[in-house]
Design a protein around this nucleic acid. Structure first.
Length: 605
RNA sequence: GGGCCGGUAGCUCAGCAGGUCAGAGCAGGGGACUCAUAAUCCCUGGGUCGCGGGUUCGAGCCCCGCCCGGCCUACCA
């Protein structure tokens, strides 16, 4: 554990068709940040990248509905999403977007490499297009009468009434779900990624992860291998990355499929980060170093893209599929070390749905409550290994009983006793067995909590960390330093010293989960410098997107390398002045539950 | 239709490779204390582990069937 590891923390790219809700950030956002912060504190070299995913039919359709360009739409939501993720304290080294010149170039390079190695071939298929726009009409955007059961609301891919799988061309009276017009079925040529060429390698790779990955991810992925088929990676659409081949590059209505370009974002964002950091080759340490590790975080709906398609693309580009080949000009690229998937968060028993307005947006949440309160809830009660339900009653309870009453109160009672009675961090006198035992337990927690964090078991890690908080509260109650004030002031000083050391340790243990409030505790204890870095928005320029060919956009970045936070018990310094503390967390009134439920009912109408 | 996951005390959830596995937190009840945002600490109640079969000396944990919920099903991400 002494050598520094290179750890890529690859975070799923939120789709820029609207603001993100708390279900989204509980899947990819908070878990990835807890992991990255812990790894940095452990002394490892972390590169945490992501961005907004901005291409594809849904964005084009939404833009048309609103009467704006796709570019205008994604500019709007890219900014909103980036602001929300900063507000949550997610410590991206770079959070960018898929509509940058750099991303286009890297995507085209990957395509070219895969094509040259023979893993991409073209095929003519019959597909539905919208006569008025010429764009592909995805199967689910075609409606009509089911040829099997006669149900009128069948979609092009499936009939919701009889459950049969359909082909859109078989629908009776097909119509576009977007504008009602009758789709045309035309021959259209598309490129396919030859996934079967990777089936064997993927299978070996996945089997080597037994016992390491969460079992649901592994089982799901292995099962998919049986039915691996070539997958189309282009669309009839003008909103996307152009296809970098003669005869295709300038076709206005052929673009790479949004999923093909989105997963490449992990690589393009790493390269963009390196360029902006002043060392354009620096990304290679996380992608081509044989020792480097790559952890990918996402919700369960994204597993297939990270355990099958993206690995296949990486293998093919590196010249390692059934057809062999040579690595592209970037060189061979690493496969994921681990694919960490969360399940889904439901909302008061219902599935989140923006369209039905069963939703709590990150922005709305953070306007009324603190980021650490949400982060705490997501880790403690979020969908780590199975779907879980968000309820306002449980949120208020967790906030009040666990954050405020247990942890906040421990900080408050310890520091205020020391500040009022002594005025600074007291020197410890002779330690009793009880003192030593509780201090040892606190030190040991760095190992137990750390082991769980290393294995992406966040819920268990937080439970262990909170156990030290309970032990510290018990220690103080048992030792009753307030009773020692007159009888044995030296002993009181020792007890308070021990208590403050426990507070300091607990603060360190909780830092990955609760960075903002941990910084506050660090300051309360007289710490100097930055304990753990917080992200910031920065405006940068790009050579595409703007009217004159130049645009600016916000990225998330931050300085996390020179922080004071380290994953170990750091001795407190006697003599450090202490001021009476202010409360660490806000206690929420029970009325919050009714207010929020009423708000939800009103919105859902 | 197929694949995967889940259905454990009033509530939210743990139970890692079958034999102290029937648990934690909260809510409820009793007590201690007063440093602290009336917070803390101790004790306590007890649920046919979705339903029906089966394997086993022994099954929440394995197998089969069924019911309910979620995700995916490859042109919605």
């Amino acid at each position: 554990m002494s050598s520094k590891r290179h750890i890529l923390t690859a975070v799923a790219w939120p789709y820029a068709n609207g603001p993100r809700h708390i279900g989204h950030v509980s899947g990819f956002g908070v878990p990835s940040d807890v992991f990255a912060r812990f790894q940095r504190m452990s002394g490892n070299n972390v590169l945490m990248v992501s961005g907004t995913d901005e291409h594809g039919t849904p964005i084009q359709v939404l833009a048309d509905q609103e009467g704006v360009s796709a570019r205008e739409l994604v500019d709007r939501y890219n900014r909103i999403i980036a602001e929300d993720l900063v507000a949550l304290g997610l410590s991206y080294d770079l959070f960018t977007r898929t509509t940058t010149a750099n991303h286009y170039a890297v995507v085209q390079e990957l395509f070219t490499g895969l094509h040259r190695n023979g893993y991409i071939f073209s095929k003519t298929t019959k597909g539905a297009i919208s006569p008025s726009t010429g764009r592909t009409l995805p199967d689910r955007y075609v409606e009509g009468t089911c040829p099997i059961c006669g149900y009128d609301g069948a979609r092009g891919d499936q009939c919701d009434n009889c459950g049969n799988q359909l082909d859109p061309i078989d629908l009776i009276n097909p119509r576009s779900k977007i504008n009602g017009e009758t789709p045309e079925f035309v021959d259209t040529e598309h490129f396919m990624l030859d996934l079967p060429a990777f089936a064997e390698l993927l299978g070996d790779w996945l089997k080597s992860k037994q016992g390491q990955w969460r079992p649901n991810v592994l089982k799901f992925s292995l099962n998919l291998l049986d039915e691996l088929q070539p997958r189309a990676i282009t669309r009839d659409l003008d909103w996307g990355v152009p296809i970098p081949l003669e005869g295709w590059r300038d076709q206005p209505n052929k673009r790479l499929y949004v999923w093909f370009d989105a997963v490449i974002g992990y690589l393009s964002a790493s390269i963009e980060w390196a360029k902006r950091s002043g060392d354009p080759e620096a990304w290679r340490k996380w992608w081509q170093n044989g020792e480097a590790e790559a952890f990918y975080f996402m919700g369960k709906d994204n597993i297939v893209f990270h355990s099958e398609i993206w690995p296949a693309m990486l293998l093919g580009y590196s010249g390692q599929g059934a057809r062999g080949g040579e690595p592209g000009s970037l060189g061979a690229l690493n496969l994921p070390t681990e694919v960490v998937s969360s399940e889904f968060l439901t909302m008061e028993g219902r599935k989140f749905s923006s369209s039905r307005r069963v939703v709590i947006y990150v922005r709305d949440f953070l306007e009324r409550y603190d980021a650490d309160a949400l982060r705490y809830y997501i880790v403690a009660a979020g969908p780590e290994t199975q779907d879980t339900d968000f309820t306002w009653a449980e949120f208020v309870r967790r906030n009040n009983d666990e954050l405020v009453a247990a942890w906040g109160n421990l900080v408050n009672r310890s520091i205020s006793m020391a500040a009022k009675n002594i005025g600074h961090i007291p020197e410890a006198g002779e330690l009793t067995d009880v003192d030593r035992a509780v201090l040892d337990a606190s030190k040991a927690a760095f190992t137990t909590v750390g082991e769980r964090l290393n294995r992406a078991q966040f819920k268990a890690a937080l439970q262990e960390a909170m156990r030290t908080v309970a032990e510290a509260n018990k220690y103080i109650s048992d030792q009753a330093p307030w009773q020692l004030k007159k009888t044995d002031p030296k002993r009181m000083a020792t007890v308070l010293h021990v208590a403050l050391q426990l507070v300091s340790d607990a603060k360190t243990l909780l830092t990955p989960f609760l960075p903002a409030s941990s910084n506050k505790v660090y300051e309360m204890l007289g710490g100097q410098g930055t304990w753990t870095g917080m992200p910031r928005l920065e405006e940068v320029t790009d050579s595409i997107g703007g009217e004159d060919g130049v645009s600016t956009y916000p990225v998330i970045t931050g300085d996390y390398a020179d922080n004071e936070a380290r994953w170990e018990s750091i001795p407190i310094v006697p003599g450090t002045p202490l001021k009476p503390p202010t409360p660490l967390f806000r206690k929420l009134d029970q009325s919050v539950v009714d207010e929020e439920l009423a708000r939800l009912e009103e919105a859902a109408g």
